[in-house]
Design a protein around this nucleic acid. Sequence first.
DNA 1: GTGATTGCAAATCTTTTGCACTAAA
DNA 2: TTTAGTGCAAAAGATTTGCAATCAC
Lengths: 143, 143
Amino acid sequence: MIASRPYANAVELIRAAHLRPTRQRLALARLLFDSGDRHVTAEQLHNEAVTAQVPVSLATVYNTLHQFVGAGLLREVVVNPGRSYFDTNIRDHHHFFHEESGQLTDIAGDRIEVKELPKPPPGTAVRRVDVIIRIAEKNNDYK
Amino acid sequence: MIASRPYANAVELIRAAHLRPTRQRLALARLLFDSGDRHVTAEQLHNEAVTAQVPVSLATVYNTLHQFVGAGLLREVVVNPGRSYFDTNIRDHHHFFHEESGQLTDIAGDRIEVKELPKPPPGTAVRRVDVIIRIAEKNNDYK
DNA sequence: GTGATTGCAAATCTTTTGCACTAAA
DNA sequence: TTTAGTGCAAAAGATTTGCAATCAC
């Protein structure tokens, strides 16, 4: 079930993105979108695909993730230097980021209000506003 | 001049961070803190040091930057997958990030207000709230 | 068929690490 | 001295790329 997207199935979804519905892309789309909102790394998704008996190369996973981002099916979240997360939630929202576990948690867009958003510099337009609330275990010296 | 920090010179600054004031650390501290707020990558800073006739290895630049972050003299800003920025502004503030040029611009902390900050999950505490306003040139298809 | 897509391996890029050498206290 | 810090080169990790083989249309 591709809940929040206006397509009945993965084939349509991928066609709408102007991509050929190949075996690999279909399988990845199902892994990503058939189970609610997810935050995955390329490597996680690759592992899942292999486990699910879908032979895909890591390179193709990267390509596909970026194509999906380009098509607006996914959003890339940058919170960690040296590792990208891909978020299947494309609604307006923000994140808790647990600095020790690396876990991302959604915060619905309407639960945070950024007041007095400053005007962007002349000639530029706002693409997106990311609010990241960095959290850590309470009794922990980690920094 | 190390304006926003309560130390008259680089030696004191580094001593206060419980680090030995070596030639390399002193030179890097001066490059970082003697000219207002800056956002630098490790490689940029390394280039500057070499240009300024201060022989330092890139490895030492990385080590030093992380030590300075640990000591609270610098802040690491994560906006780009696969590259870290280090920010000499350690006051409460946020950023514009120009997605095409990679340029970071400070936004004073009091110019943005995050309302209704959601409570962090049980057992965790908020370390920091990052607001990143991603911008791009207006007439540009870049995504 | 033909043009897009895949997979592999190699390449790239940033960052980290091991360890002998050097310098600060 | 003693211990921290440095530099190099090698390693590590994530991501990208080149290109021949393969697949969708």
